[in-house]
Design a protein around this nucleic acid. Structure first.
Lengths: 303, 303
DNA sequence: ACATATTGCTGACCTTAGTCAGGTAATCCG
DNA sequence: CGGATTACCTGACTAAGGTCAGCAATATGT
């Protein structure tokens, strides 16, 4: 799907659908929002109020989440304060420059009202539809969200010793311990030193969604022998979004770039979805090529 | 799906999905549009340029399509003119108050550039996905669009002698002529006079989408006898969106309001999707109750 | 202790996207 | 023919949303 040069007819149709979708959805939702949320309050103040009126929040956190300019947010907060909807005071945190916004009772009531209107807006979308259509719409919306989200995942090289990498690996070992019938002790497993997962001997990649690390994978290069993939893990919450496949593709590409003719890996029989993914990605089962105690299956893929 | 009072758990989940969808889609598409379409030109001028730069258009048509204030559009056109992207001149039409906007070569090039960026934006959504995911996304987007569109259809009483009604009925007869093996001659069919499809003897309803009539239906009330549904038609382009079902529901409701205990109708064997719809709506086949020459099946539904 | 960075605040300024009232020329209607 | 209406234009005005520079207070690294 290169954006350049000759686009195939299918790509063309897909792109047209996405464009039509963008147009339709923004105009339809935009019109509805004007209609339902159109209170006397502006969108900006509404968004801030909504963000703040749960449990309160630090000003910088609000700025971060809504992507607002410090000056603009400050003005919005003053205006909410004037209306008696929030109070801003020194934060509980150690840093006494930081300030915390808290909703007043009026603010909480106002947010509840906003919520009510959002619900109404959503209901107005569903209202004219039959039960079957509703179910189909909700399902299709879910699919669109999941896949748009999947498109936001970035897979990139990272330091295997970084905090994010450590967190992923810890989650990975944790999951193995839970899923392997025998439990899992990293000390008993074949366990290359972390620094080997870095150029020139190997590579470590992290998958990120909205900056959060949600998956990882590593590969070791073995000159003329097959490259060796390890430590493939994807967060539960984002499974089925093709993240594993993309991590694997990134590792294979790195192996290819290092002249490897094939990639090997081993895995445990209890990791059924991983095994299915390996097979679907072109891996075929081979004779055991090492004595990893936790492995039941050994795979290889020619590049 | 009443917006008031106790909402069921399923309704709650559906509404939450719609709200999450609205949030996600607007923010994701909004961010992308800023990124890709973020030229030096404002959204307003871009929209006008895009609308105009095909074959040119009359100013009032542009105003209509984009829903702009006359003064605002005038200013946008002056600014496009200053940039040398369009020319505005007296229209070819008879009315010399009307003016026509035409793109210059520069304007056409600029629109092509806008198109290119929209394509890129759409491609950037698809690009990180696997082929299977792309296909699923495009399909789900299509479903969402169709169902959002379906929600915009309004079914309302109308004068059977109005232009819109005539157009629908003409299209209806046309389709019968095409689909009936024997052709169709309205003169040979049981043919109540148009004015009977109005209170108090009957009712005519039109289905509209964006103001355009895209379906119709009529019912005659027969005091203590069953009400009688006629002239059910839905435009090809919007079949499968549940429009027929909603027209039928409106007619049944009217019959109920007039004290009818049941509704009857007859139809031709070649109208298979209509027959399926009647059955799915609770109609059961009965003995012929009239001598309509074009009918093969007679149906009744208890209200 | 000192320089530098960060956090939040304020005032000045800007563009966009409108609305509204009124004006002019052309057209339509009785 | 005259009055109403229509199509477009202009000028004045507004609100929202946002940028930018600079300030004061506080934190942090050396």
């Amino acid at each position: 799907m290169s954006a350049r040069a000759e686009t195939s007819a299918e790509d063309r149709a897909a792109i047209d659908t996405v464009r039509a979708f963008n147009r339709m959805v923004t105009s339809r939702i935009g019109a509805l929002e004007d209609h339902y949320l159109g209170s006397d309050r502006s969108l900006g103040t509404s968004r801030v109020l909504w963000e703040v009126a749960g449990d309160g929040a630090e000003v910088r956190a609000v700025r971060e989440r809504l992507g607002l300019d410090s000056g603009y947010l400050s003005r919005l907060l003053r205006s909410l304060e004037r209306e008696g909807l929030v109070t801003v005071e020194a934060a509980a945190s150690a840093d006494s420059r930081v300030r915390t916004v808290r909703p007043t009772d009026a603010g909480r009531a106002e947010r509840a009202e906003l919520d009510r209107r959002s619900d109404q807006l959503a209901a107005s979308v569903l209202e004219p539809l039959s039960d079957g259509q509703r179910a189909r719409l909700v399902e299709a919306m879910g699919t669109v969200m999941r896949l748009l989200e999947a498109g936001l995942v970035r897979v990139e090289p990272a330091d295997a010793a970084s905090d994010d990498a450590r967190r992923c690996l810890a989650a990975y070992y944790d999951e193995l311990a839970r899923r392997f019938p025998s439990g899992f002790d990293p000390g008993r497993s074949l366990h290359p030193d972390t620094h080997e997962f870095a150029e020139p001997t190997g590579l470590f990649v992290l998958a990120r969604l909205h900056g959060r690390a949600i998956g990882c994978g590593a590969v070791l290069f073995h000159d003329d022998e097959p490259a060796y993939v390890k430590r493939m893990w994807v967060d539960d919450a984002v499974r089925g979004m093709g993240v594993g496949r993309r991590i694997l593709a990134a590792l294979e590409q790195a192996a290819r770039d290092h002249g490897a003719a094939s990639v090997t890996l081993e895995t445990n029989a209890s990791l059924t979805e991983a095994i299915a993914m390996y097979r679907a990605s072109g891996y075929v089962e081979v004779e055991p090529f090492n004595d990893e105690v936790y492995a039941d299956h050994w795979f290889e893929k020619r590049l």
